[in-house]
Design a protein around this nucleic acid. Structure first.
Lengths: 183, 183
DNA sequence: TGCCAAAGTTATTGGCCAATCACTAATCTC
DNA sequence: GAGATTAGTGATTGGCCAATAACTTTGGCA
């Protein structure tokens, strides 16, 4: 397998592991095991652990956009928003995707505390890009986009906390744990 | 100082440290240093590190409610909601408070992966209690309460990512980085 | 076929950290 | 002021982990 292909498989594996354990709670050993290579080899593909984490963050945000994009292709306004809402409800079945997002959010502060501002800048840029793409797809309404993201972040929280699908806290989110949607 | 008083000062210090480093990224040594006691003494006050973390989670959620409660005392409906919105905008000046919440959200998944379901149950119960108190204060509207929480979680995310106050991403949140409020 | 570059491994190290143990200092109570 | 309870410390240990260095395997192509 080429280095480039390996790098991508590392990023995917890293996403799963980091989603679970966070930056500090995930060993490079665990990532390597999941990929099926030796632990030191990761350091041939990436300069250090931090770089793997950053790649996983970017990948995760891009992946989220791909899901929204595919779901709302050719749509605009409310129709696009509905389509993306439904897509997100599907996406969160994959708890790892959501948790990696959350890990990204908490890691910026930690990184800043150790003097590393790079992580924060990368993360802010990635998130802003996602926001603006959604805003555009919805039809340029900042207010709508903000609300869309707000509900998304609440969903992330509820997923993180692990409320079961049929818990009453999900009541306002039609379509999750039920048949069909349109949030 | 009595053991009970010490325990509380440990929890407060733990909140600050965990907010920054997360569960795995925070050493008991760091917490002890902040409190001003020796590291082994923490294990006289708490059975283990996990217990300190859980106490910090509960404290953090309670603290959040106290802020809302104080701000909206005697109010109901929209007035209460406005008051709480404004109070939250003040609260997030203290980035640690917000980050501890986020750490709590991401730690449940990690704990579950190691077979510990206790953390999750504690966290879900604490969060649900906060939600229901807010819901009641607002006047019993689940929809309004959900929206309130949703915007709260978005704010948490933006704080986590560290967008400066005057960044355009905050545009929808009147009162943050500006003079007055009413979100 | 033989070579070389890219892919990949084993062994190791130095640092960190939760938790335990054995011990000391202060405070209270009669 | 003795005796006991409570607050608190120093030293240690066993396990984990990021990163490095030195070495081996594999595949393509002249």
């Amino acid at each position: 397998m080429s280095a480039e292909e390996r790098r991508e498989s590392v990023v995917r594996a890293a996403m799963v592991e980091f989603a679970r354990g966070g930056y500090r709670g995930t060993s490079t050993e665990a990532i390597a095991r999941r990929v099926g290579v030796s632990q030191p080899y990761l350091f041939r593909l990436f300069p250090n652990k931090q770089a793997i984490f950053e790649a996983a963050c970017e990948y995760c945000i891009e992946e989220t956009w791909r899901v929204f994009d595919r779901a709302s292709e050719g749509l605009t306004g409310e129709a696009a928003q509905d389509a993306m809402s439904r897509a997100y409800v599907d996406l969160i079945e994959d708890r790892e995707q959501v948790m990696m997002q959350m890990q990204m959010y908490v890691s910026v502060f930690a990184a800043e505390s150790t003097g590393d501002v790079q992580v924060g800048e990368t993360a802010r840029a990635a998130w802003l890009r996602l926001f603006e793409r959604i805003e555009e797809r919805i039809g340029g309404s900042r207010k709508e986009a903000t609300q869309f993201m707000a509900y998304g972040m609440l969903i992330n929280t509820l997923v993180g906390l692990g409320y079961p699908k049929d818990h009453r806290i999900w009541a306002e989110f039609e379509g999750y744990g039920k048949q069909a949607g349109g949030c």
